[in-house]
Amino acid sequence: MSSDKLEKSDVRRAWFYVAPALLWTMAFFIVPFAFMAAMSFASLVRRKIVYTWDLANYLEFFDKPYLLKGLFVSLEITLAVTLISVVLAYPLAWIIAERVPKRLQRAVLILAILPFWTSYVVRSYSWLLLLSSNGVINNALMGAGIISEPLQLASTTSATIIGFVHFFVMLLTLTIYSNLVQLSPNYKRAATDLGANTFQTFWHVILPLTLPGIMVGAFLTFVLCIGDYITPQILGGNNELVLPQIIMLQLGRRADLPAAASMSIILMLVVTAVYLLCLRWLKMERT
């Protein structure tokens, strides 16, 4: 009897503790999301929002190639950024965790996250200065006689990818590093005792064990990258629009909330699908 009472009071206390977070999530995520979902089934008729409860916005999105292309451009850029960032971040995280003396690791990590200390917008504009026709890179190449005419580096999809990678390599380095330092050295010792060389130890032991860290970082990169509007706007030169830019066009130019809502839902469904695909790796604890 007393244990029952104890359990009930525990349940009440648990509800009390989680209530603020639940209320917060309800007020600022669930309710706005419900409004957005409802809005996606409305239409803008002569500049007024009319709840038609149909799929017109979704059909229009898939019907107009230049809108659909926005989704493909977003996916293409996001996948490239995620892949490049993982390839660059893993060795960096491994060097920091394995080769840098423990007492210096904190300082090196601070250096690694220095780019986070500047504004995201400023960082993107800085890349514009580096990549522009009169920028540092073109001037250096022309000064060295390697090229005679400036290369078009800025205002391209490549520029957008470079800007993103610069940011997300740091994010991934942190998540992979935190995974690497949690690994017990006994794994490596056991592999060595069993006759594995350095590469075999890495490939068969370290890499699988750090896969959750990679996947968490990669998923965060995917989510943040596919929803980003600023970097493509500054570095992409409006030459190939990503989906968030098209959503912003609907909001800023047309005030077409229903179209913007439907595209946001599509973007969210893509992220959800990727989350479900990655679900089996998105666990930090080792079994």
Binding site: L44, R47, K48, I49, G252, R253, R254, A255, D256, L257
Partner: peptide
Amino acid sequence: EYEGTGAALSIIDQ
């Protein structure tokens, strides 16, 4: 701030 009359009229409508 707004850009384009269409956006302004929609803001006012809403």
